[in-house]
């Protein structure tokens, strides 16, 4: 129960950090950390399958796509 509350608190803090980070480049990395917090919550709630998917997609694929798009926008 304490673990669940802790994981929920982390997700809440992470979501706030994603929303209130002003620099889009930094958001890519904050979002990746937020994905890990979310994965921890899924794990604590006994959904390891979903946790693995979240780590795999949220930690590499999404930040890369966001960063590449940003690099195109800056170069124009």
């Amino acid at each position: 129960m304490i673990l669940q509350l802790l994981a929920f608190a982390l997700v809440l803090g992470g979501a706030a950090a994603v929303v209130f980070t002003p620099d889009p480049r930094k958001v890519a990395f904050v979002f990746s950390a937020y994905g890990l917090a979310l994965a921890l919550l899924f794990l604590v709630l006994q959904a390891p399958d979903v946790a693995l998917s979240e780590i795999a997609v949220g930690s590499a694929a999404v930040p890369l796509v966001v960063l590449t798009v940003l690099s195109r926008m800056v170069s124009k």
Binding site: D49, L52, S53, A56, V57, S59, A60, A61
Partner: peptide, 8 residues
């Protein structure tokens, strides 16, 4: 999940 891990 494993497939995305390989690609990562």
């Amino acid at each position: 999940q494993g497939g995305v891990a390989i690609a990562t």
